[in-house]
Write a protein that binds this DNA or RNA. Sequence first.
RNA 1: GGGCGGGUAGCUCAGUUGGUCAGAGCGUCUCGCUUACACCGAGAAGGCCGCGGGUUCGAUCCCUGCCCCGCCCACCA
Length: 871
Amino acid sequence: MEKAFDPRTVEPSWRARWEELRIGVADRDSPRPKYSIALPPPNITGVLHLGHAMGFSIQDTLARHHRMRGFEVEWCPGTDHAAIATQNVIERQLAAEGTTKEALGRDLFKARVDAWYEEYGGRIYEQMRALGFTCDWSRSRFTLDDGYVRAIRTAFKSLFDSGLIYRGPRIVNWCPRCLSAISDEEIDWQEQTDSLVHLRYPIDGGGDIVVATVRPETMLGDSAVAVAPGDPRYRDAVGRTVTLPLTGRRVPIIEDEAVQPEFGSGALKVTPAHDPTDYEIGERHGLPMISVIAPDGTMDVPDLPRFHGLPVEKARPEVLAALREAGAVVKEEEYVHEVGHCDRSGDVLEPLISAQWWVRMRELSEPAVAAVQSGQTTFHPRRYTDVYLAWMGNIRDWCISRQIWLGHAIPVSTCANGHTFAWIEPPASCPTCQCPELHNDPDVLDTWFSSALWPFAIFGWPEDTDDLRRFYPTDVCVTARDIIFLWVARMIFMGLRFTGTTPFADVIITSTVQAADGTRMNKSKGNAVDPLAMIEEHGADAVRAWAAAVGTGGQDVRFNRDRIESFRRFANKIWNATRFLVTRLDNGEGVMSAPADPPGVDELEPGDRWMLSQVAETVEAVNASLEAYRFHDAMDRLYDVTWHGFCDWYVEMIKPRLREDAPAGSRAAAAHTAITTLDVLLRLLHPFMPFITEECAQRLPGSLPSLQLRDWPQVAPGWREGLAARRGVDELLVLVQRVRALRDESGVPAGERHRLQLSGGDPDMTAEQRMRLLTSLIPVEVEENGDLNGGVSVVAGGLEARYHLAFGERELARSRRRLAELESAIDRLERQLATPAFTGKAKPEVVTEARRRLVEARREQSVLRAQGESQ
RNA sequence: GGGCGGGUAGCUCAGUUGGUCAGAGCGUCUCGCUUACACCGAGAAGGCCGCGGGUUCGAUCCCUGCCCCGCCCACCA
């Protein structure tokens, strides 16, 4: 074995091995219980960053863990066409080349897109492969696949035929660059400082009314002035009209509850065609919707040539100037507010009226709320449940049409006779009147409409396929919190609608990876980290272990190269521990088998039992952590027990026993314990760090072609018995540390032995055992002396230390203290519960809690007393 | 405006039913190339657990107020 672990030489062959063994490919007909995950399909807008790597690593950890536990694991991968995002990327590319998609034409544009998908789809796959993911590539899906398209059309038609999809003109979030509507969830709100302009509108017949706006240009489309109902300041004005400056249009003064009387002057100019609030006011009052801004973001006011055709940002000062000339401007003030931007292009959104396709949400959201409330799907961390419920609870209709080139065509046609219908296969004629003259809807679907079907569409829905029956619903969905609404929520209501069940039982929300400076990591800022670079530097295992260590704390995490590096060192540590044991135990015919028959209890020394009991605890702790999706706990624990418990303490303490001249029984027991421990640790670590663990496990006796074919470790009956010996050994280890510190402080030369006088200690440990353990770790001559009562001390010129092992005494003191604590707690609780003021007035749950605590405290008290008496 | 999360060693962060919970990694300092590992080992220093109240025998942990930081939601133009 090489002296240092080199991931680069090891990783490729294991990737190949896993593929040869078809580790990731799920067998539909296997008798094992299934465990399935639908990989959140990454957008093919570029390569994956560290955030993806984290979420995906966690999924692979789950997949590998469940395979070892005996599940037939289906982790289905795929990619998302991400229509609007990809189109933006390509368009930017074209712009850089000095051309446009229009100049290119549809066909060439499509070729361009396909080439992009090819290249980046491939690179994403390479990234995932590099991390050692065992997803089922045989079932890999792309949202533009034929079968997938069929699923989308089926879902669309079903919703359309049930009246849950409708088309209509409404106010939408319009992106003037994408030239498309977008949904509420795709708005990126940014704080912005603007000028709040107060305008005076003359009231017909005398007087005037002042309104405030940050968008004076929209006043060209005003169709009313609104005040709060009953506002005394405007009692006389309501019902009258004003004549708008510049347009000369007469509009009414109305009352509407949307108006906040405290804001500004308490009067609001109403522009229903260009403001969501105003739109609703307009609907309530039947106001005309006067569009003055065109889809390309320029003013559309042919009657006013001064402004017509100006881009909004140029029109604003121009209109303001005109208003000033007209004497309508009262004052201007700085104003900070949130402005919606397109989350793809970054442009300021222009609310405007447009005919779009919508999904009626009420009927879909109600079951989706109920499903989460009833626990059919659980969020981890739990607090995201409330986030989800709040959103789903007051959701508005979903705008699903996009006016872009790329994406799934809306499967709707209208015939010459005006029959509109949805279809699954492109029709030749109208199903109602057989008219062959059809007009297809020109829009495409919101990408998230297709993503919403992912967990069942990947398995062949709407067909009742074997895969669907076998692997759906999935078990968990691992994703980032910023797509809870965009994706997770929508999968839930679509799943309920089309399959009658939620698509996954658990949703794991991973940490968000920030750049080192705490800002958001994103490609355009250039601070995104490519996982491949980290793999190159530290190896795939290090990246994965890092992901597990920081991915599920529920807290955002800053990119920290040192942290990743620490796991590379950890891999090296594992490598070297293995290398040491394997070479030391190689008897010429291979590694000395951890004997087929484990040594009898008699042959195990206290240190061996100490180690095995820790192994038992580790298995249980890791199980509990994984059960609760607390990967960071599991990783921490494994790191600690492997490095410190095993390498630093155990391996060091058995070194003398591993020498060939050591007593055979003792040597066998140490070998058995060491190999057993290493084997269990490697298996526990494998889902997190598959490469290094495979590489090491291969060298141990009894290995299989892959750890993925081994069982998940279980605690063997004897291991826990070591718990009793633990305290005795632990006490010696504390002594070792104190002696080391003492030697360090006293400047004793490294090799020089000194005398150590001992008394006390675990009565079950012989003086011989105690001495062997100590001398394996520190250079001392041990002398047992029953009369010592002091701690460590230095005697005379040469070092001499005396130490009294307080075995049992510490526990006794602790138990006394605990008893005292319990007594006072019981005292207080009894007093509290005897007080009518408390039992009568406090909240019932508080009283119940107090009773429960009292019962618990009494129980613990009696247990401790019983223990005390037995000793 | 509402809600959520966070403020713990120089840095990045753990700390799940209030009582060995004051921890890890990195960094720093002092030793050590003892035949697994210098991608190492041993030892050490370092913290009013954001601030003020409160509950309690006891609070980093529970309640309350405040100060910062981040995020989400929201129709105040």
